[in-house]
């Protein structure tokens, strides 16, 4: 599996980046929710990156989430940052459901 994948979805008004681990259960829940909400996003499985990419991407993640934890969703280059599988917050910020 590619470490960085673009996941297609019908809702693409925000730039959504998910920093995840392929082994993490909460990350998997986050991926499932984004897919269920049909949101277009860039999925980065940090643990599958090359050692060089890990160093670069760690710095990017740290800028928005100093705890360097997974999953972290960065929306529109940091306009919104959601750390952890916060289902309600993800729905509020990204979906059109009422």
């Amino acid at each position: 599996m590619e470490a960085i994948r673009n996941i297609h979805g019908a809702i693409n008004e925000h730039e959504v980046k998910l920093f995840a681990l392929s082994t993490c259960g909460w990350c998997k829940k986050t991926k499932k929710l984004l897919e269920e909400l049909d949101i277009e996003y860039l999925c980065i499985d940090f643990d599958l990156l090359s050692d060089d990419d890990k160093k670069t991407i760690k710095e990017e993640l740290k800028e928005f989430n100093p705890a360097i934890s997974f999953p972290t969703i960065i929306i529109d280059q940091g306009e919104e940052v959601i750390v952890g599988f916060k289902e309600d917050r993800i729905r509020d910020v990204l979906s059109h459901e009422d």
């Binding site: 082994t23 940090f46 360097i68």
Partner: peptide, 27 residues
């Protein structure tokens, strides 16, 4: 059960990668 299954799978993957079952939700 879904979370449990994923976590167990993650532990198995990490043990295969590193030689020890590190926390699946941590790098």
């Amino acid at each position: 059960d879904d979370l449990l299954f994923d976590l167990i799978q993650g532990l198995v993957d990490n043990e295969g990668r590193y030689g020890y079952p590190s926390c699946p939700c941590r790098q």
